[in-house]
Computed example of a mutant assay.
Amino acid sequence: MRLLRSTDLALRVLMRLAVAGGSQPTTRDVAAAMDVPYTHAAKVVADLRHRGLLTARRGRGGGLTLTEKGRGASVGALVRAFEGEGDVVDCEGGSATAPCPLRSDCRLRGALRRAQEAFFASLDPITVADLAADPTGPLLLGVPRVRQGSA
């Protein structure tokens, strides 16, 4: 299973904010530090803000701040939210493919569904705060903050 870029970025943003202390990086700072396009980071930040996991203030003295809900958020719940709980394989076929001829009697779909749920369940007890604990925290603080217009 491979996570979507948005899921990966959401987790990394939350982890970075968990160790930010008094600093409030901007969305541009996050995009630069994570080496992703600003538009992609802005969409992820907006989604996280909508979910109540971070706050975003504009203007001078603004930036991103992790909420208590964000600090205690379950990684399993976050991954489910960003990835969706759809099947790993599309047995019904999308608009571009025909349905699988084995779909009525195939055991693969159920096995993959159980494996996917085991994956999510293994992440459920882990929180964002857990991910940002030592030794990861100091590494996250070392991620450079690049301001727009700086060399």
Score class of each variant (00 low, 15 high):
R28P: 03
L14D: 14
A81H: 15
G142S: 04
R12H: 02
A111T: 09
A151C: 09
M1Y: 12
R49S: 11
L102T: 11
L112Y: 09
T97I: 15
G93C: 00
P25R: 12
D87L: 10
G142L: 03
R109W: 08
G63C: 09
A96H: 15
G70K: 08
A20V: 11
D47R: 14
P135N: 01
A96K: 15
P125M: 10
V44H: 00
R57H: 08
R2T: 04
L140G: 03
Q148S: 14
A151K: 07
A118G: 14
H50Y: 09
A133V: 05
C100R: 04
S74F: 09
G94M: 10
L64R: 01
D90L: 03
V75S: 02
A41S: 02
D130N: 12
R51V: 07
L48E: 03
S95C: 04
V19F: 04
R145V: 07
A118V: 09
V143Q: 06
A133T: 06
V128S: 01
L131K: 10
I126C: 07
L112S: 00
A41T: 00
D130Y: 06
A41P: 03
R51G: 05
M1E: 14
S122G: 07
L66D: 03
L48A: 02
A111Y: 13
R103M: 12
V89G: 01
P144Q: 10
M34Y: 04
S122N: 13
V143I: 04
A20E: 04
T55Y: 07
G137F: 03
V13G: 07
L9P: 02
A133W: 10
E117P: 08
A132K: 00
V146N: 12
I126F: 04
R58S: 15
L140Q: 09
R49T: 11
A115L: 13
L48M: 07
L11K: 04
L9I: 02
V128L: 07
L11W: 07
L139F: 08
G76N: 05
S23Y: 07
G142M: 05
S150C: 11
A81I: 14
A31Q: 01
R16I: 13
T55G: 10
